[in-house]
Design a protein around this nucleic acid. Structure first.
Length: 308
DNA sequence: AAGACGAAAGTGGTTGA
DNA sequence: TCAACAACTTTCGTCTT
């Protein structure tokens, strides 16, 4: 992995921080998201590592849901494999072996197609492997329960991916999922809700803070402004400004305010675009933030400073 | 002229009878 | 199943820089 170390294009620092779950590489000095939505951390790192050969290549879990037969194929039931696995994995293997016999060929074909589509969308969004795996798991469950019937395969794939993103705190907006999958936004939302409900997947509302890093980076805001935005967010949460509102709108407003405070002015339009909300929403949130948190003085301060 | 602000009407989703 | 409701959007006119 050491070959991954790069310099920050913004400040030249090599003090980079890798957040595997979110698939982001962040510069610790200036806060720039050097590389976001990184692709795989598992088997696909050959580009970085070609000379060190085969032994490092296979580092993934012994089983993967992203292959339609869980990567087992004819190997199911070979006892040699089972020795290496814990009880949990063993149980999985036994269950899988059952499927192997029970599953109809129709479902297999469906899965094969769907997982190809899932990989396509996932790589388009540059989602980390862990999310892709989770999505594949969800989709597999959905197929088993017959939840795909009456819905397009693609929309269920999109819904599964969206759910997986939420569970891994690596939020992508419905818009992004919709664009990547070519499925209507409403449809993605609908199947997402349907699938999560039917499978009993707990859905905690996504945290606005999870969006900050990505938005701030697109807006090229400084690290200070970014952490100030998170601060504002925490304050807002304490006074109950956040419940019931769309997380992206809140994140956007927090960024807008902190940009003003640090004299790194961005227009409402710019912020609205990267956050995927309208200016009006930003204005409303922004107004609330100023009222309840008394941030006017901070903004005025920086205005005066500019005059000097 | 561009951006910020606010009002009014419309949309889609949630909720509770 | 339907109506009320809140959040968000769209549109448009006015004010500020």
């Amino acid at each position: 992995m050491s070959n991954l170390v790069k310099k920050c294009p913004e400040c030249g620092s090599i003090n980079l921080f890798l957040n595997k779950d979110k698939g982001e590489v962040i510069c610790k000095d200036c806060g720039l998201v050097v590389e976001e939505k990184m692709v795989d951390f598992g088997q696909e790192w050959r580009e970085f590592d070609s000379d060190s050969g085969d032994k490092k290549r296979r580092t993934g879990a012994p089983m993967t849901y992203t292959q339609y037969d869980q990567g087992l194929g004819t190997e199911v039931g070979q006892k040699a494999d089972l020795y290496k696995l814990g009880t949990k994995e063993k149980n999985k293997f036994f269950r899988l072996r059952k499927w192997q016999y029970r599953i109809s060929t129709a479902i297999e074909r469906n899965l094969k197609l769907a997982l190809a589509e899932l990989k396509r969308v996932s790589s388009y969004l540059k989602l980390p492997k862990s999310v892709e795996e989770e999505a594949a798991r969800i989709y597999t469950l959905a197929v088993q329960r017959g939840l795909v019937r009456g819905r397009s395969m693609e929309s269920v794939v999109a819904g599964s991916l969206y759910a997986a993103c939420r569970r891994h705190d690596v939020p992508r907006t419905l818009d992004e999922l919709s664009e990547a999958s070519g499925i209507d936004k409403k449809e993605v939302g609908r199947t997402y809700r349907f699938v999560t409900r039917e499978l009993g997947i707990s859905i905690l509302p996504s945290n606005p803070a999870d969006y900050i890093a990505r938005f701030a980076s697109s807006l090229k805001l400084s690290a200070e402004a970014q952490s100030k935005a998170i601060e504002i967010l925490e304050m807002a949460q304490r006074v109950e400004l956040t419940s019931g509102r769309g997380p992206t709108g809140i994140a956007a407003a927090a960024l807008y305010v902190s940009a003003l405070i640090f004299g790194e002015k961005r227009t409402q339009r710019e912020v609205a675009d990267v956050a995927g909300v309208t200016e009006v929403t930003i204005r409303n949130r922004y107004k609330e933030l100023l009222e309840k948190l008394g941030l006017e003085k901070d903004i005025k301060k920086t205005k005066k400073k500019k005059k000097d």
